[in-house]
């Protein structure tokens, strides 16, 4: 299970990098960025994952086997922060893309570069 998830994370990252580098459509580039970040988030989550782990909340019942059986809560906190950052960056990028479309009447990066030199 964990190995498959690592492969999935790497595939997500590779797909994202491919989309950012090779696509000429701005929206597709932004989607590629999102997929890339999702791959990283998955990677972070798997780092803290344990097979058959319990939720990282200490109660009176589980305190003696908590350390060996709970999943690592820190990566989840990191991913939460990172998702918020990613959301705002995506929103900003999309707004800028619409403004670019208003000015240039296209979202093809090659044409934008040609127009502006």
């Amino acid at each position: 299970m964990i190995v498959i998830s690592y492969y999935a994370a790497v595939i997500f990252m590779a797909l994202g990098i491919y989309a950012v580098v090779s696509k000429e459509n701005l929206i597709k580039k932004i989607i590629g960025l999102n997929i890339f970040t999702m791959g990283i988030h998955l990677f972070l989550i798997i780092i803290g994952f344990k097979e058959n782990g319990i939720a990282p909340i200490i109660t009176a019942l589980n305190s003696n086997y908590f350390v060996i059986s709970s999943v690592d809560p820190l990566p989840q906190a990191l991913v939460l922060t990172s998702i918020v950052i990613d959301l705002s960056v995506t929103a900003l990028a999309l707004i800028t893309a619409t403004l670019v479309y208003d000015k240039f009447k296209t979202i093809d990066t090659n044409k934008i570069n040609k127009l502006e030199g």
């Binding site: 950012v20 701005l26 580039k29 932004i30 960025l33 890339f36 970040t37 990283i40 972070l44 990172s82 950052i85 960056v89 900003l92 990028a93 800028t96 893309a97 403004l99 670019v100 000015k103 240039f104 934008i112 570069n113 127009l115 502006e116």
Partner: peptide, 22 residues
């Protein structure tokens, strides 16, 4: 026009770099 072009370029390169950092 130049400002928006530079801005979208900067956003894509910059957020890609931050993801690599992550």
């Amino acid at each position: 026009k130049p400002a928006f072009e530079s801005s979208i370029k900067y956003i894509i390169i910059g957020s890609f770099a931050s993801s690599i950092f992550l």
